[in-house]
Design a binder for these strands. Structure first.
Lengths: 156, 156
DNA sequence: TCTTTTTACTTGACTAGTCATCTATTGTAG
DNA sequence: CTACAATAGATGACTAGTCAAGTAAAAAGA
C-alpha cells in the first residue's frame, strides 16, 4: 500500500498516476510553473515581466549591433506575432529602440537602450541569486544528471 | 576547453551559463515548454486546449457531485479570474454545466456534461500515449530520481 | 526584365493568466 | 439581531502566446 506521492497530494488527485513517466512529465510542468512564478515575483517590482527581461538580456548580448525582430523570437522559441508586440511594449517603455534595417528594408533592427541596460544592471544581483535558489540543495552530480535528463526529454 | 552545452546551443547563447544550477533551472523551463507544446498539438484537433482538458479531467474525477469554481482553480494552481472565464468557454461549448449551489448561494457548482465525458473518452488513448512519450527512453530509476528532484525543487 | 516565391514582419481575433475592484452571501462578534 | 468581516465569484484592464491573413521588400526563375 504505497503512500500517495507528493505531486499527487499537491494536485489533490484521488487516483494514483497511471504511470511514473506521466507523473514525471507533470512534475516538470508544475516545477516549471513554480520557477516561473518565482521569476515573475522577482521582476514585478521593477515593472517588467520575465519574458520582457529575457528579451532585454538577449539584446544586451547582441550589443552593439542589435538584432532583427524574428531572431529574438527564435532565441525565445516564441512565434512571431508575440515577439512583435512584446517589442512594442518594450519600445513604449523606452527600453529598446527599433529602426528599419537599411540593407534589408524588410527587417526591423532592435537594440537595447541606455535605460534598458541600466535596468538590467539594477536587477542583476537579485536575478543571479534567485536563479540558483530553486536548486539550492542539490549536489553537482544531481544537477548534472538533471540537466542531462532534461536534454534527452526535449530531444525525444 | 568544454564544449558548449546542448541547451546553450539551443538558445544560441554565446556566454556559458554562470552556473550549472542556472542551466538546470532554464532546462526545466524549456523542457516544460516542449512538453506543453506537444500536449497542445495533441489537443488542438479535438477543438480543446490543454488547460480546458485538465479542467474536464478534474471534473470527471469529481463526478457525480461536481465542484465549486474556485476548487477547480486550486487544483490547477490558477488564480480565480482565469478559471471563471475558462469555465465560461467550456460551458459555451456545452462540455460543462454550472448552477448556483442551493446550500451556499455564493458558490457556483460545475459538472462535466455527457458531451464532455464523451470527448475525454475519445481523447483518452492519444493522451495516454503522448504523456509518456517524452520520457520514453528513461529507466525506472531515472524516472524516480527525476520525480524526486523535481519535488525537492518545488519545495525549495 | 518581369513575374513568382520567399522572407520579415504586422494586424486581427482568440485563449489564458494576472491584478485590482466590485457584488452577493455567509459567518461572526457585539 | 445587526453591523462588520470573510468568502465565492464576476468584471475590467493588461501581458502574453497562438493561428490566420495581409503587406512590403528581397530573391529566384523564365
Amino acid at each position: 500500500m504505497e503512500r500517495a506521492s507528493q505531486l499527487q497530494q499537491e494536485i489533490k488527485q484521488r487516483k494514483p498516476f497511471r504511470s511514473k513517466k506521466q507523473e514525471a512529465a507533470l512534475g516538470i510542468l508544475r516545477t516549471a510553473d513554480v520557477i516561473h512564478r518565482r521569476g515573475e515575483a522577482l521582476m514585478a517590482p521593477h515593472g517588467i515581466t520575465s519574458q520582457q527581461y529575457n528579451v532585454l538580456r538577449i539584446l544586451r548580448g547582441a550589443e552593439p549591433e542589435g538584432l532583427p525582430t524574428l531572431e529574438i523570437g527564435h532565441r525565445l522559441v516564441e512565434q512571431t506575432p508575440g515577439i512583435t508586440r512584446l517589442l512594442d511594449r518594450l519600445e513604449k517603455k523606452q527600453w529598446v529602440k527599433r529602426w528599419r534595417c537599411p540593407e534589408d528594408r524588410r527587417q526591423v533592427l532592435c537594440r537595447i537602450s541606455k535605460a534598458g541596460l541600466a535596468l538590467l544592471e539594477r536587477m542583476q544581483a537579485d536575478v543571479d541569486r534567485s536563479e540558483e535558489e530553486s536548486l539550492q540543495n542539490f549536489s553537482q552530480n544531481e544537477i548534472q544528471a538533471l540537466i542531462d535528463m532534461l536534454d534527452r526529454a526535449r530531444k525525444a
